[in-house]
Amino acid sequence: MNRLKLFEKLRVPMMLFPALAIVVLLFGGGMISGIGQSVGYFPVIGLQDFTLDYYRDILTDSGFIESLWLTFRLAFLSTLMSSVIAVLFALVLRHAFRGSQFLTFLYQIPIPIPHLVVATGIVLLVSQSGLLSRGAVTLGLTSTPRDFPVMVFDRPGIAIQLTYLWKEVPFIGIVVLAVLKSVGPQYEEIAQTLGANRWQRFRFVLLPLIMPGILSTSIIVFAFVFANYEIPLLLGVRYPTTLPVMAFRNYQDPDLALRPQAMAISVILAIVAILLLVAYKRLAKYAAET
């Protein structure tokens, strides 16, 4: 009897323990080790004393500020555009019509495709010698590759944005679509009989219903883009580049003295991300309630 009781008491902790242990040890351990290095604890090269010098160096560096702004801009724009486009498509795809199932399948194709593959495809499509540029020549719009607008290795980062859009629109889209399908048309019908026009039905009935889904997927997307390394490295200009690229560059520099700086950059990256996400969530919660 007592053993049964004890088992019952330990059941939940036992179920949680393995997952928690791995996440806490790996993620938490990594965080602590990283933060430690960023404040000067790096015994491998003989650093032991606490210092905030690395943070000061970085925060006063104009290149860092520029990178931070670029990283933020890419993440913000990708998230915003993806959400808007995803909602628009979801509004169409939630209805059953001829071919809607096939269209929904097509719409989901980007979800499993790795970002690197997407980057390859985008380069082959929109670079100055890409398929679109060739099409422009064929149509007589341009005559040489140089006439075609620069979208890869450009400062605005158009190819980077396109890559993220292509990947994230369906991701946000299927979550919103799933919510819309489970909600059904009845709330809108009630609203309509109560006098709500098309826009009012979207603004006051649908949007509050799908907002939680949009928000949580947006946060995932924002966090992903904010911390992504390979896409800006492959498709962006060398300078200014995003914070993750900057951090890894410093980290992999043969000069080990740059490592604490890399750590400081990534800690700042994490802090900024958390702050923005908290602010965003607050703001959106406020927006949804009014």
Binding site: Y187, E189, I190, A191, Q192, L194, G195, A196, V205, L209
Partner: peptide, 19 residues
């Protein structure tokens, strides 16, 4: 519909859950 003044009360999904 929105101008007709024929107002519907459904059996399920009665109230807007967000309000």
């Amino acid at each position: 519909t929105e101008k007709r003044g024929a107002v519907m009360v459904f059996q399920k999904h009665l109230l807007f859950p967000t309000m």
